[in-house]
Write a protein that binds this DNA or RNA. Structure first.
Lengths: 329, 329
DNA sequence: GCGCCAGATGCAACCGGTTACACTAACCTG
DNA sequence: CAGGTTAGTGTAACCGGTTGCATCTGGCGC
């Protein structure tokens, strides 16, 4: 409760001197410094940073908007964001938006009203901003936003994964996608088609089934695709969660993974390694994504840049137990 | 950039009138209201909430401190916290503390310096507070802190789980614990012992092995316990992650779950239902925990209560595939 | 001893809102 | 019509820091 005035009075100096003693000790004499320090200790003074931030018109706070924090991929990126932000003197406001436009706008408003200095958007969708521009970085890519994003090459990564399946001899490769309009889903589908084309395999529309990245949708779409007259021998799932669901559904039907059907995922979330069987997938550099996103955003905030160049980070194919050679028959 | 002064000038009224037009429209005449609204629209005015918060000495921000946000149980609680806080007009600052004392202190300091109004601690450890007390709620219980916590009865829940195993005919029941000094581990161990006592089974120290709640420690401790001369037929793991690791390790050794060894977990995280086999566990009401923690904290903040009564929430035994009758031999 | 300079300190404006209080005009009551 | 009430608005203090500028003091050179 003690304010700088109390400290000043206690030390017998002016508030300006106290302020300087704290912020620029080299500008204050030894003797005064000592008196001030003693007064600070005695009064249990804590500067009111609300006042300081108000004066400087800065909150030292950034918002991270995420569709669902319980998604392990997102929570890993967020952990990296928090870590880096903390290092650089910023706090992270959590905005679990549930993909709702209104919730996103709430958080945009926080920046407009100075309660936050910038935004990191984890959902691959352009944020609608009505008034003057606010600093924003897309940490998981966004096809409509050429700049200000740190991302991976989704198409290339998907192509790598599907080409790997083709190299194992698979020719009937199913694709369990995310929502049709999702940029990640679109890009990964492109990669899927490119890989098939390169392997000389025709794309069959019936092998492409729309899900929504969730475990449940992996179960549903896998069941659906296996009911086809000539079902695939390999499934490319656009998220590890979908792969988990797919594996679950196949095993429930008595189909062996990978002996009868190979299943691969995308993201390399923490549990994929320990799933049964462990899941072949694409590893995204979540920590690096988080760190870079913070650095890019702070560059915008602190240097008043309106845009920063996007950065594409490399991915890695992680081969595990859930994929194997195409069955002979 | 437009401030309230610009709006006042544009509307031809005083700043006080603008302020009132926005906060208490019923106190302002129709005509003036209209002029002000027009001026607001024209100038793209956004109130500087940093200034408002400074004036009211409130940040409308609460910190949630969590050892590890990638832990699915924590992220579920946090989601519920964010949801409730948002509803009640507060933002959530994420403090991933990695169990580090210094990191926790950083966030305590944020409250002391007015950048946040209170804390929710998810780690079951009392937070060290040096100066005057800050509003804090323990959302996962803390044995040293009788009040201000919303929690479950860990001992009773563990007892319920172990009694269930005993009722299946198991007499050799292993216990893979969290870190020895962790309050949750201590309480759950008490429940384990009570259940054994009630079933007339002697506690064997060699059946109690210390882990740290992580999947990896589940693997290690399971391997260790199965090397005993007379290994258990059931394992009580103190977290679902440990149960996952234990199941993994057993299966890798060719041991069938649950036919040869039953494995049960604790927490009922999202993946437990889909694990192979699905995991018998104790369901904690994560959503309710998060919601209540926020309500308790805001009661402290807004009503200036120093303490609030703790609340103990019910748990539920969820029986799934990973547990079964003791093997005949 | 005077003037100059530098270092230390104080004074006061400022950030952008909120709000207590004062003031005015219009309206009501007896 | 005097006196009182009320609705609507303006003035200015205030929140707790920061900081430009003025002031003061002491030391030094000439």
């Amino acid at each position: 409760m003690a304010s700088i005035k109390d400290v000043a009075q206690l030390a017998g100096v002016s508030v300006a001197t106290v302020s300087r003693a704290i912020a620029m000790p080299e500008k204050v004499s030894e003797k005064t410094l000592k008196k001030v320090h003693q007064a600070v200790a005695q009064s249990g003074y804590r500067p009111n940073l609300l006042a300081r931030n108000f004066r400087s018109s800065r909150s030292y706070c950034i918002v991270v908007m995420v569709p669902d924090i319980t998604n392990p991929f997102f929570s890993q990126v967020i952990k990296a964001i928090e870590d880096r932000a903390q290092q650089r003197g910023y706090a992270v406001l959590l905005g679990d938006t549930r993909d709702l436009h209104d919730r996103e706008q709430e958080y945009v408003k926080r920046v407009e009203t100075r309660l936050a200095d910038g935004l990191i958007q984890l959902r691959p969708k352009a944020v609608q901003i009505e008034g003057s521009p606010v600093p924003i970085v897309y940490a998981c890519g966004c096809s409509n936003v050429p700049d200000c994003s740190v991302t991976i090459d989704n198409a290339q990564a998907a192509k790598k994964l599907v080409s790997y399946l083709a190299s194992l001899g698979h020719t009937r490769i199913g694709c369990l996608t995310g929502l049709r309009e999702n940029p990640h889903a679109i890009e990964r589908l492109t990669g899927y088609k490119e890989a098939l084309a390169e392997a000389g395999i025709a794309v069959q529309d019936q092998y492409i089934i729309e899900g929504d990245f969730t475990l449940g949708s992996g179960q549903d779409t896998a069941q659906q695709i296996m009911r086809l007259a000539n079902p695939p021998t390999a499934l490319f799932c656009m998220s590890d969660q979908m792969a988990m669901g797919a594996i679950q559904a196949l095993q429930a039907q008595g189909i062996k993974v990978p002996e009868q059907v190979s299943v691969v995922g995308f993201d390399n979330i923490a549990y994929s390694e320990f799933w049964h069987p462990s899941i072949t997938t694409i590893s995204q550099p979540a920590d690096e994504v988080g760190k870079r996103a913070v650095d890019m955003l702070l560059a915008m905030i602190e240097d008043h840049e309106l845009t920063v160049a996007s950065k594409i980070l490399p991915t890695q194919l992680i081969v595990r137990e859930s994929s194997g050679p195409a069955p002979q028959d």
